[in-house]
Each structure stands twice: as structure tokens, then as C-alpha cells.
């Protein structure tokens, strides 16, 4: 029954379209969607803040980054206006990682107050500028990016 099969196919296609659309309107992408919480928001949750899978986003406080390449041990502090959280990761920081930058980490806030992160993501700004004097040479950064991956 070719006609029957085609009808089922059409119905399936319609279901795919409508369900993607429904998800969009009523599902995860509602007004409530929060891709990451800031340190201040997470700390304000009190007891609910701990031991839950969390995406935490903030600015890396300048001067707080400690990176031990041999032990693969990365520590830094994330902040927003309302708070600061110390982050620990056992992965190399992305090549674009700089102090003062926006960073998003995935992991859990532990009872010790340290956020144990399984992945560190760097948020790039919408600015595109050529290098000024004193910045690391882009060519060198490009090489290090290739080595990284």
C-alpha cells in the first residue's frame, strides 16, 4: 500500500515540525530558560545550591587564576556583582582563557564552597580588534591553539 505509507510519512513529517515548534514555544525555551546562573544567584539559593548539576557563569577575577600544568590543576574565582565562587577543574583551560574574561563552567558546588567543574567554556565578546603592542602575537596564539587540539 504505497498510498498508505505515504500518508504515514506525511503524518510523521508533520509531527516532527509541530513538535519542534511546540518545544520552542512551550518547552525548554520559555521565559524561564536560564542557560547559566551567576555566582550571586547560586549562593542566594542557600541549601539548594549544593551538589546539583549547575552551569555557572561569571567573570574571572584578575589575579585569582592558578594553573598547574603538570598536575592538570586549574583554580580561579568567578564573580558577579553579588558574589564570588572559587572554581576547581582538572582540565587544561581553553586557549582563549584569560583573567577578566566571561567564563561558563559546568559542574557542582560542593559543601566546601568550591565549585567542582567538569568543563570550562570561554565566552567571547562581540568585539573584533587587531592586536595592539604588548598583546601576545596572534601568530603565536594560533600555533598554541593547534598544539592544544
Amino acid at each position: 500500500m504505497k498510498g498508505g505509507r505515504k500518508k504515514i510519512g506525511a503524518a510523521l513529517a508533520l509531527i516532527i515540525v509541530l513538535s519542534s515548534f511546540g518545544y520552542l514555544v512551550y518547552g525548554g525555551i520559555g521565559e524561564n530558560i536560564v542557560y547559566f546562573v551567576t555566582p550571586g544567584e547560586l549562593l542566594a539559593k542557600g541549601n539548594d545550591a549544593y551538589d546539583r548539576p549547575t552551569r555557572l557563569g561569571g567573570q574571572v577575577v584578575p589575579g585569582t587564576m592558578e594553573w598547574d600544568a603538570d598536575a592538570l590543576d586549574l583554580r580561579f574565582t568567578l564573580q558577579d556583582e553579588d558574589g564570588q565562587i572559587r572554581v576547581h577543574s582538572q582540565k587544561a583551560p581553553p586557549a582563549m582563557f584569560r583573567e577578566g574574561m566571561g567564563v561558563i563552567v559546568e559542574g557542582k558546588l560542593t559543601r566546601t564552597g568550591v565549585f567542582e567543574s567538569s568543563s570550562v567554556m570561554v565566552k567571547h565578546s562581540n568585539e573584533y580588534r587587531p592586536p595592539e603592542d604588548g598583546h601576545p602575537k596572534p601568530e603565536d596564539m594560533y600555533k598554541s591553539l593547534i598544539r592544544e587540539s
Binding site: 592586536p131 598583546h135 601568530e139
Partner: peptide
């Protein structure tokens, strides 16, 4: 175009 100060030649993907 010059390389970007943060991402170098990766900027070319723009």
C-alpha cells in the same frame, strides 16, 4: 584583514 587580538586567524571563520 589583520588577525584578531584574542583569537588570531580563527577570526577568518567570521
Amino acid at each position: 584583514s589583520a588577525p584578531d587580538r584574542d583569537m588570531g586567524h580563527l577570526q577568518k571563520i567570521l
